[in-house]
Design a protein around this nucleic acid. Structure first.
Lengths: 213, 213
DNA sequence: GTAGCTTTGTGAAGAATTTCACAAGCTCCT
DNA sequence: AGGAGCTTGTGAAATTCTTCACAAAGCTAC
């Protein structure tokens, strides 16, 4: 299969969100025009994105909403539930655990881990904070696990190494640090300071620069 | 000035982070090779990125660390402090308020606002949760303000409209919703569910796809 | 059934971004 | 002072991503 750009995957994710809305409202079909309008992109872009994976629409009619929803869920690998472990029982970890969007979209928070001995064993919402040492055992045999890293930068790389040794193959990193992972592990980083700096740049150099929605 | 790509700005931000480290350690110069290694990019990319803004290096020697640090801070508009108001006194707002990276890099949390009458007036860390209605007055005359939106999606657009009416010109949005802003307002959105879905896609279709560090 | 309207799917064109490759410039050493 | 050894800055090439434009195909009405 051809390599799919990151930007394409993000848009697929967005199409899915809106298609789910339309489906819930009982709308049967949607044209690339309509989707483009909702997602602030172009009809051509919508069609091109979808065409990488097959031809789901009917000419003259548009895309069947319910069917395309399933197809996108399949493409994005959202047909089964993903188990999410949160590493770092701090404020960011807490915010993520409560984030509505996760559960709604099939990501189930499975457990919370920390390195700090003070925190291990403490209750945390409905769960108990567990030790990183038990991660490998807890995940033994588990396949669809995504780890969310919400700890200070200093420890980030060493914790990542521990996680990978424990069998984690996907990491969403919130620590503002460059993390290195082997090729078989997928990593995404969200860096909030970097986003703010992007806004600072835009405000400082407003030569027609526009932020990204 | 030429339009600067978003990806370029993100990398500048990253160069700055590492240059600050090097500066703190007393290193005098750094080559594009060294920066590229630290930031996981290529030397040519580093040079090209910097060359959009001037020529800061010395051939045969590299870039003067301390000087380039200042230059980048200037380019990114980080020479003065930015005031950050957090809209939404929930878990995400709390996490952001405590995020070390913000304060460290010149973003000062100025106040917390909410729409919910139950929350308004309540203490929140060292501050008191304020009403959105007072936003316009509070910001009157203030120039360098960035609003961080951490509320549920349903209210997002209407709150954004209120903020813009109050004079906000830069918004970092954490609500998983498409927000529309007029051209003079800069907007960046962070969508955590979308990031997780990207990982789900990568794990499901691991045909050489690699996440982004 | 076919004319007219609509919308997809897709090569090809265009734009944007990254990488290449090398001349020019600086430092250090002798 | 001159040559050797680096490293920058930058046009040009390559690659990646987006937009265009249109043939092919479905639907509706008569």
């Amino acid at each position: 299969m051809k390599r799919i750009a990151d930007s394409t995957v993000r848009r697929l994710s967005m199409y899915l969100r809106y298609l789910e809305d339309l489906d819930a409202r009982g709308q049967k079909t949607a044209s690339s025009d309509e989707l483009a309008l909702l997602c602030h992109t172009t009809p051509a872009q919508v069609r091109k994105d979808l065409s990488f994976f097959g031809s789901f629409g009917k000419r003259g009619l548009g895309y069947p909403v319910h069917d395309l929803t399933s197809q996108l869920r399949h493409i994005l690998g959202l047909e089964h539930e993903w188990k999410v472990v949160i590493i770092g029982a701090g404020k960011i970890g807490a915010a993520l655990a409560n984030y509505r969007g996760f559960r709604q979209r099939g990501f189930r928070i499975e457990g919370v881990y920390d390195v700090s001995p003070d925190k291990i064993g403490q209750p945390w919402g409905e769960a108990i904070i567990r030790s990183m040492d038990s991660l490998a055992d807890d995940l033994a045999g588990q396949d669809s696990v995504i780890a969310v890293l919400a700890i200070p930068s200093d420890d980030a790389q060493s914790v990542v190494d521990t996680m990978i040794a424990a069998g984690v193959r996907a990491i969403l990193n919130f620590a503002p640090a460059q993390i290195v992972v082997p090729a078989h592990v997928s990593l995404k980083s969200v860096n909030m300071a970097m986003e703010l700096e992007g806004l600072s740049f835009a405000l400082t150099n407003n030569h027609g620069y526009r932020g990204v929605a």
